[in-house]
């Protein structure tokens, strides 16, 4: 089921010379495909009120807690859950799923990443996300999107290529491999980010995984319109400034794996790094685990 239909890519994206431009579409492309039955738009936000306040016509909401996470285990939905989700949004194996959302698409990238774990690779991110669509005065609706349910034959989730677990991270630390901490500089340094007398972000300790490079996720974004920076700027940010090598294994992490899925997308699809994983256990696991080293 490894499909990414390479049809009519966005011209503004193609000109940016990304390694895999087929995984990114611009708002013009979305506007042209609003009624394309082969394309399904998915909005994923951090703010639970945004989708209902207005969304791209026909777009479905995929909520990270309600739709993507297992309610009892710290894990993602299983094959059955993914089949139900795809059925709800009317998706078939060949549907192109285009994700967008708030926070410059960080939640959209998170949902995109989970879809990759099930091998649904005919996917893309809408460059600039929700804010760019709205700034361009494009249509929004509060109408509830509906679709004829489908029988989607999902693969069993395969975490091996895209998801890192604690022991693999520890091995990479021992090998002095490439780790990217995408949290804010204050989180990276271990400075307190919370109100006095209020628990700190679910972690006992502040700091970062030893050897991790600090590249806050939002540095990959043009602040004016939320679009991804150019290939040249991204190379400068990750490869020149931080010395990340495209052929070396790389693990990105943040607090729970949502912001780092954004960086994972940039490294894997825009820069074309060959072996990038997202560590969704991230700081809430590493910062609390017994016996794991940290740096401040």
């Amino acid at each position: 089921m490894k499909i990414n239909q390479n049809y009519d890519m966005s011209s503004s994206i193609q000109s940016r010379d990304y390694a895999h431009p087929e995984y990114l579409v611009d708002t013009d492309w979305v506007a042209e495909h609003l009624n394309d039955p082969n394309v399904i738009f998915v909005e994923s936000n951090e703010d639970p009120l945004l989708y209902a306040s207005g969304h791209i016509p026909g777009a479905f909401e995929v909520d990270w807690t309600l739709d993507l996470n297992d309610p009892l285990i710290r894990d993602y939905l299983n094959k059955d859950g993914f089949e139900k989700l795809m059925s709800r949004i009317g998706a078939g194996p060949r549907s192109k799923i285009v994700f967008y959302g708030d926070k410059n698409n960080w939640w959209a990238c998170y949902a995109f990443w989970v879809f990759q774990l099930f091998g649904h690779t005919n996917t893309a991110i809408m460059d600039g996300g929700r804010v760019k669509w709205i700034k361009e005065n494009r249509p929004l609706t509060t109408d509830k999107s509906t679709a004829e349910s489908t029988n989607y034959p999902a693969q069993t989730r395969d975490d091996s290529h895209l998801r890192a677990f604690r022991d693999e991270v520890l091995e990479l630390v021992k090998k002095q491999g490439q780790l990217v901490d995408v949290r804010s500089p204050e989180e990276y340094s271990g400075e307190r980010m919370h109100m006095p007398d209020y628990p700190n972000e679910g972690a006992l300790r502040g700091g970062h995984i030893p050897g991790a490079k600090s590249v806050p996720w939002a540095k990959a974004i043009n602040p004016d319109d939320g679009t991804f920076k150019s290939m040249e700027e991204l190379r400068e940010l990750y490869e020149v400034s931080q010395g990340l090598k495209s052929s070396e294994p790389t693990i990105a992490y943040c607090r729970i794996g949502e912001r780092s899925s954004h960086t994972w997308f940039v490294l894997k699809y825009l820069l074309g790094h060959s072996n990038v994983k997202n560590y969704d256990g991230s700081w809430t696991e590493w910062g609390n685990s017994v016996g794991l080293p940290i740096e401040k």
Partner: peptide, 16 residues
């Protein structure tokens, strides 16, 4: 079902 970041920010608004 709020994200950790969202609940932290909103809780801090109340606390502040």
């Amino acid at each position: 079902e709020l994200s950790m970041g969202k609940s932290l920010g909103l809780t801090n608004l109340v606390q502040q």
